[in-house]
Design a protein around this nucleic acid. Structure first.
Lengths: 337, 337
DNA sequence: TTGAAAGCGCTACCAG
DNA sequence: CTGGTAGCGCTTTCAA
């Protein structure tokens, strides 16, 4: 591969001069610029970013750590970060395959090896303390979808409790009295908090939810189907169903209709996340919008600030987001008194 | 950030020795390994991948060029490449935002700057010749979803014509006689070829398709809805509808049912791609499976081979894939004679 | 405005 | 088995 030396030799100038035209450096004569540019074109020369990173001590890369790209939620996250990367003339480095604290740590380490200037990390398994220590090593570290008080200025998160409350208020306002819930079987905080917010708001309204009407399942379409079958099998009646995420909610609707229940006239179903799917389902899914792409963009931008030594960091920042109710077709007024 | 020198100094050995234990080099005493490992842990040292890349002349990165991550099709593509990257202890570099030949070229150039060992490129806009020349510069270049004869050994592609034929055969076997089509308005080859295969197979069976029943639209849910409205507005009858992709097909079903047509009993609808959505729709979508993730993994693996100077390249390889019919619920037998 | 040279962090070769 | 050292491709002083 041709190097800066080749370009220098063929244009009859020093590598320093080539470097200057490469970087639009100050004080380069027009003549030099022209000569060098011509040779660069002829040789089809492309500067080596690794060498640059080495000497400048910045890699112009932005790392992302997510479980996978198949889940549209994480794909949106990555897409948001990528947008910022592109705008900032940086490159996106991606690490996935996270199933355990070890693999999360490994993914992060790979990005550190690459000396990413910014790292947007979606970690559910690593302990707070590890992440806090990590933030001392990586200036541009930002956590998304997680809140750790000690490093709150690096956390872009969604208020899941409030999300649960908003869900409850919506269903309550629709005159529902008998509720069911489907949560994720994975005991990470999100499903727990959503459920917690939901129940607490119901309680405030003087409504209790039958423990038999709280199911836990795989956070997938199938998981939603299975959980709904359990719900139905319990024999208890309910007119409103709050589901952990959209995929499960769509599975739930499927099973409900297969069993002769109309959505929303018999049973209202409310999802969470507002992924693409929710607009494709029939009936279109009412859900809570999780603005993950915007949050990811914000995360990337904050990482950029954090990694910039010139801007002093303000530790008092708070990046909490509140989900927004999106009323579509799967929830409706309950006419029964 | 701590460097190999720091580690060497504190362990009382040379940088060469540290490098050896870092790379499990041969001929290192247990004692040295232990000493060095201890210091590495203490210092929390992480080797600099950029420096490594510079000296070894391999970046251990795998680049991907796709339009975006929001489209589940491309997300699957990226996910496939990522799987291979992880298995090979490499990192994924992602470039998106492709709308023109210029932006495609720019994305590719960024990856070249990074000296990616392998590049999996999804390019629809760059001319054949440019890609051919590029392949001389980048040993590990692989094209996905595109076929260029001169560099066929670098092309992993789907036979869209055959896909169209398979679609036609399926619908014909279901006793359909009156067909409609929705294609993408974008005049890239895929929609054209699918339509071409579809029509040619119909013709072989002695069936013609009314030109008024061929619509073109945006390749999205909404595009499918609009196109279907046009189809319906034409007043012509049809019992089978072949649609460019799943998103459009789901939009089509929506509009059909809104207009009183039952799918599949009144009209059969067949999609293409078999993205996640197709399993979530009601009725579940019959479609043609585009094994994009597998193809992406194959592409990455071939790129790996190509980038390895030790393996001589066999230019006679052919990586054509045939889509597979997935019968679900949106197509059925037409009882009318 | 230009060139010479130091050095970024690391690997790999050559001596010992 | 270990250390010294050249050099990967580039940027950035410092002098000229």
């Amino acid at each position: 591969m041709t190097t800066i030396k080749d370009v220098a030799r063929l244009s009859g100038v020093s590598v320093a001069s080539v470097s200057r035209v490469l970087n639009n450096g100050p004080k380069v004569s027009k003549k030099t610029i022209e000569k060098v540019s011509k040779v660069i074109k002829e040789l089809n020369y492309t500067p080596n970013a690794n060498a640059r990173a080495l000497v400048t001590q910045k890699s112009t890369t932005l790392g992302v750590v997510i479980p996978d790209l198949i889940d549209p939620f994480f794909a949106s996250l990555a897409n948001g970060v990528e947008k910022v990367a592109r705008k900032s003339n940086m490159q996106l480095l991606l690490s996935t395959g996270l199933v355990s604290a070890e693999s999360e740590m490994q993914a992060i380490n790979l990005l550190i090896e690459r000396r990413c200037d910014v790292m947007v990390v979606h970690s559910k398994k690593l302990p707070d303390q590890v992440l806090i220590e990590l933030s001392n090593k990586v200036a541009g570290l930002v956590l998304i979808d997680r809140y750790i008080e000690e490093i709150a200025h690096r956390c872009i998160w969604l208020d899941n409790i409030e999300g649960g409350k908003i869900a409850a208020r919506h269903l309550l306002a629709l005159n529902h009295k008998n509720f069911a819930c489907i949560a994720s079987k994975y005991q990470i905080d999100d499903p727990l908090l959503r459920l917690q917010g939901f129940q607490s708001e119901l309680k405030s309204a003087g409504v209790d939810i039958d423990p038999n009407l709280i199911e836990h399942g795989e956070p997938t379409l199938q998981g939603g189907e299975v959980a709904t079958q359990h719900l139905l099998a319990s024999g208890k009646r309910f007119s409103a169903l709050f589901v952990y995420n959209d995929a499960m909610a769509i599975g739930a609707i499927s099973t409900l209709e297969d069993n002769g229940f109309k959505v929303p006239s018999d049973i209202s179903v409310l999802g969470f996340d507002d992924v693409l799917l929710s607009r494709y389902s029939r009936p279109k899914l009412s859900t809570l919008n999780y603005p993950i792409e915007e949050m990811a963009m914000q995360a990337a931008n904050i990482g950029l600030e954090l990694s910039d030594k010139n801007t002093e960091l303000n530790k008092d920042k708070n990046y909490k987001h509140i989900p927004r109710l999106v009323k579509r077709e799967s929830t409706s007024y309950n006419p029964n008194k």
